[in-house]
Computed example of a mutant assay.
Amino acid sequence: MRYLPAVIVDIVLVLVFAAIGRASHDENPAGFLLTAWPFLIALAVGHVLAALLPGRPRRPWSVLWGTVVWVVTVAGGMLIRVLSGDTAEAPFIIVATIVLGVFLVGWRAITALLRRRRAAAEAQADSVPLEDEYPDDLPR
């Protein structure tokens, strides 16, 4: 169950990628599933591979996990597109690699940064004594 939130976020981001791509080419954005399906299959494979790797990252929201998912999603998605008779021209490969990298690794990097900041703030708050912790008769 701990994998589900990360998988859902990744699915939504792949769907957003496909919808933006179709709209940017004046294609009907409603057909985004036609663009997205190869990447969704590769995304699922990426999550499975990340979970099975020896010495794997244990958290699906980690940057390392996201990197594995990103690489497999792009490479697998392109392979599935070509095998299904669609195209994978160089500009599309470049754009997909960059956008999916920002999407699939980016949210994890932001999450890691926010977690570190929160942990640092909590550690600092724990180390600073409150005014009420000093007895009134002791010098400060």
Rank of each mutant, 00 (worst) to 15 (best):
G76M: 06
V16D: 06
V63R: 00
L40T: 10
L104N: 06
I41T: 08
L34S: 06
R118K: 13
R115Q: 08
V102S: 01
R115N: 11
A51S: 12
A23D: 01
N28M: 10
G55N: 14
R59S: 14
I93R: 06
A119C: 00
T73D: 00
V128Q: 11
M78T: 11
F17D: 04
A88L: 07
Y3P: 02
G55I: 10
Q124R: 12
D136I: 12
G66Q: 05
R117E: 07
G85D: 03
G55P: 04
P54M: 04
G21K: 04
L64D: 03
L138V: 13
G85F: 04
P139T: 01
I8D: 01
V128C: 02
V9W: 04
L130H: 10
E27H: 13
R56I: 07
A75I: 10
R81H: 11
W70F: 15
L79A: 15
T67C: 05
F92H: 05
G85Q: 05
E131M: 12
R115V: 14
A75L: 14
P139M: 02
V71M: 12
V74W: 11
T67A: 13
A51D: 11
L83Y: 08
D86E: 09
D126A: 15
P5M: 08
H25E: 05
T87R: 12
V45R: 02
A36F: 15
D10Y: 09
T73W: 04
A88Q: 08
R59A: 14
R2K: 11
M78P: 03
A75C: 09
R2W: 10
A75W: 01
L64T: 10
A44L: 15
V128L: 15
T111Q: 05
V99E: 14
A112T: 12
V14T: 08
I98R: 14
V63N: 09
V12N: 08
I20V: 15
A120R: 15
A42Q: 01
V69M: 00
D86L: 03
I94T: 06
G77A: 11
A42G: 02
W37I: 02
V99L: 14
V68I: 15
G31N: 09
P91L: 05
V45P: 03
A75S: 11
D10M: 07
Y3S: 07
V12D: 07
L113Q: 06
I94F: 09
G31A: 08
D132S: 15
A6R: 02
D137N: 07
V82L: 13
R115C: 01
P129K: 01
L130S: 10
E122P: 01
D26H: 14
D126W: 03
P5C: 01
P129M: 09
A42S: 05
R22F: 11
P57Y: 04
F39W: 03
R140K: 11
R116K: 05
A44C: 13
I98F: 15
V71E: 10
L83I: 00
F39Q: 05
I11H: 06
V69R: 04
R118I: 07
I94Q: 08
S24R: 13
L49N: 04
Q124T: 07
A123G: 03
D136P: 09
P139S: 13
L113W: 08
P5I: 10
D10I: 04
M78Q: 08
S62R: 00
A6Y: 02
